[in-house]
Simulated scan of single mutants.
Amino acid sequence: MDILAWFDINNTLVNIPIGGGYAMSWIEAVGTVFGLLCIWYASQEKTINYVFGLINVSLFAIIFFQIQLYGILMLQLFFFCANIYGWYAWTRPSSEDGDMLEVRWLNKQKMAFTAAVSVAAIAIMTVFIDPIFFALANISVDVLNTFGADLARPELSPDAFPFWDSVMTVLSIVAQILMTRKYVENWMLWVVINMISVCIYAAQGVYALSIEYAILLFIAANGSRQWMKTAKQNQQSKQHDQAAEVKA
């Protein structure tokens, strides 16, 4: 098989007999597997999740380029950078004492700030999602054309679910940032995102993606459970150390 042909979305690996039939390409199948591995190992607090994450977003960026979804493609570029930062943050001391980043909860101030920014961003994006993504798509095409891509500007239809699409986009960015800092709340956001995704993709007839996000929903729920347990243990350990210092 020609290596370039492997990246073609029309190079079908298997036809899935769901809905009206779904031809899954090699690149989508492999990208999905790496995505599932990324989320699973992140739920286990394993740094290798970022390796799988980088491969996943790179492959999906190629897919979105081919189907001309340039706004989502640019979101993959954000995830690529976030994975690199997360890998760095999880493997470097977070203080001068050499302490590593540990799983914990957001404090009340950070929680309020995160919620306020998220609500505001969702509201703004819901109103302006079409012009924002149309502009991003055209900018992306112009940038790619400077490198000789010779692409025509895409003709885009209005967003089918502007509010829910905005919720998924904003919360995905927030959840990814929280994950890089090991905040438990990231998994709760992924649970919400995946629940919405299952419903939206099923409503649009993209049943393979709906099933994939149902699997991700299970992994995110397990991640919430695991990280809540770890955060509790970390908090108890910190309280024990502080008590020991007082006695000393």
Rank of each mutant, 00 (worst) to 15 (best):
D2E: 10
D8R: 00
P17N: 09
P17Q: 09
I18A: 04
M24P: 10
M24V: 13
S25K: 02
I27C: 04
T32W: 05
V33Q: 00
L36V: 11
C38R: 01
T47W: 03
I62W: 10
I63V: 15
L69V: 13
L69M: 12
L69R: 00
Y70S: 08
G71F: 11
Q76H: 08
L77H: 03
L77Q: 02
F78N: 02
A82E: 04
G86L: 05
A89H: 06
R92N: 08
S94R: 13
G98N: 06
L106N: 04
Q109P: 01
A115M: 14
V119Q: 07
V119L: 15
A123W: 15
I124W: 09
T126D: 11
V127Q: 15
P131R: 12
F133C: 08
A135K: 09
A137M: 03
I139D: 12
V141Y: 08
T146L: 07
D150Q: 11
D150A: 07
L156K: 14
S157N: 09
P158T: 15
A160T: 14
P162C: 09
F163I: 09
F163R: 07
W164L: 15
W164E: 08
I173Q: 03
A175Q: 08
Q176E: 03
T180A: 13
T180L: 00
C199K: 04
Y201H: 13
A202K: 10
A203F: 09
V206G: 00
Y207M: 07
A208R: 06
A214L: 14
L217Q: 07
L217T: 08
K229R: 12
K232E: 14
Q233A: 11
Q236I: 08
A243D: 11
E245L: 13
A248T: 07
